[in-house]
C-alpha cells in the first residue's frame, strides 16, 4: 500500500516536472553571459535583455502582438457576450446548433483555418492586411468567450432582471445596472483568455502576416528556424512574464483549470 502510493507520487512529480521543464529552462538561460544560450546558464548578465531593444523588429513585433491581442479580445468579447446572452436567455429555435457553430472554430485545426482564410482573403484584398489578421484572430478567440460567458450565465438568476424591470428600470438600465455587473467576471476572464490565445498564436498568424506586419511569436518562430540565437531566450522570458501575470489574474477570477475543463472537443 505504502510502496504503491509512493511510486504513484514519484511518477506524478516526474510528470509535472516533464510538463514544466521547458519553461523552467528558458528563464535562467536568458541571463547567460555567454554568446549561446544554455541551461544551466554560464555566468550572469542582462546583455540579452538590452539586446532586445537594439533589435527593432522584436520591439515592433511586440507592440503589434499587444495591439492585435487587445483588439481581437475586445471584438471577441463584444460579439461573444451578445451571442452568449442571446443563447442563454432567449428561447431561440435550434440554439444547440447555434452553440455548436459558434464554437466550431475550436475543433478545426488552426492550420486548416489559416489556409482557408488566406485563400479566401486573397481575392478580397484582405490577405496580409491588419484587418485580415484581426478577423482571423477574432475567429479563434470567439469560441472561448462563448464558452466562458455561457458558463458564467448558467447560474444567472433572471428574477433579478425581472425585479429591476418591475421596479421601473428600462431595458438598457436593466442591462447596465443588473446584467452587466453580474456577468462581468465571465467577460473579463473570457477577454483575458482571448488576449492570451491571440498573443500566443503562431499557426493562424503564419498565414496572415506580411513582411511589414509581424507578431512576437512569429519573430521567435522564424529566428528559431534560422539560427540558434540567445536573444530568443530573453524574448521568450518576456512572453513568459506577461503570461504569468495574466495567469495569476485569470486564476483569481475564474480558475485556470476550469477554463480548460470546459475545452472538451
Amino acid at each position: 500500500m505504502k510502496a504503491l502510493g509512493k511510486l504513484r507520487l514519484v511518477l506524478a512529480v516526474l510528470g509535472i516536472i516533464y510538463i514544466l521543464i521547458p519553461l523552467i529552462a528558458v528563464v535562467p538561460a536568458s541571463f547567460t553571459s555567454a554568446n549561446y544560450p544554455s541551461f544551466p546558464p554560464k555566468g550572469f548578465s542582462l546583455q540579452w535583455y538590452t539586446k532586445i531593444l537594439e533589435r527593432q523588429e522584436f520591439v515592433e513585433a511586440f507592440f503589434n502582438s499587444l495591439q492585435f491581442a487587445c483588439l481581437a479580445a475586445f471584438f471577441a468579447v463584444l460579439f461573444g457576450t451578445l451571442g452568449a446572452l442571446a443563447i442563454a436567455k432567449y428561447d431561440i429555435p435550434g440554439k444547440h446548433y447555434v452553440t455548436s457553430i459558434l464554437t466550431a472554430p475550436l475543433s478545426v485545426p488552426q492550420l486548416v483555418l489559416g489556409i482557408a482564410l488566406l485563400i479566401y482573403f486573397t481575392p478580397m484584398m484582405l490577405a496580409g492586411t491588419s484587418t485580415g489578421f484581426l478577423i482571423a484572430h477574432t475567429i479563434i478567440c470567439i469560441p472561448y468567450v462563448i464558452r466562458l460567458v455561457l458558463t458564467g450565465l448558467s447560474g444567472f438568476d433572471y428574477n433579478l432582471e425581472k425585479a429591476a424591470a418591475i421596479l421601473g428600470a428600462n431595458p438598457f438600465i436593466v442591462f447596465w445596472k443588473v446584467t452587466l455587473p453580474l456577468i462581468r467576471p465571465a467577460m473579463i476572464s473570457g477577454g483575458l483568455f482571448a488576449f492570451l490565445t491571440s498573443f500566443d498564436n503562431v499557426t493562424v498568424s503564419l498565414f496572415m502576416i506580411s513582411p511589414n506586419m509581424r507578431t512576437l511569436p512569429i519573430e521567435i518562430f522564424s529566428t528559431m528556424q534560422d539560427a540558434y540565437n540567445p536573444i530568443v531566450a530573453s524574448v521568450s522570458s518576456v512572453v513568459i512574464f506577461i503570461s504569468v501575470i495574466l495567469i495569476v489574474v485569470l486564476e483569481k477570477i475564474h480558475g485556470v483549470g476550469k477554463v480548460f475543463g470546459g475545452t472538451q472537443h
Binding site: I19, P22, Y228, S243, V256
Partner: peptide, 28 residues
C-alpha cells in the same frame, strides 16, 4: 491544476525553445 494548465497559456514557440535548450547536441 494551476501548475499543469498554466503552460497551455504560454506560446508553443516558447515551450519548444525550452526543449531546444535541453535537447540540442550541446544541450543540457
Amino acid at each position: 491544476t494551476l501548475l499543469i494548465a498554466s503552460p497551455l497559456l504560454v506560446s508553443i514557440v516558447v515551450r519548444n525553445f525550452g526543449w531546444y535548450l535541453l535537447l540540442l547536441p550541446n544541450g543540457t
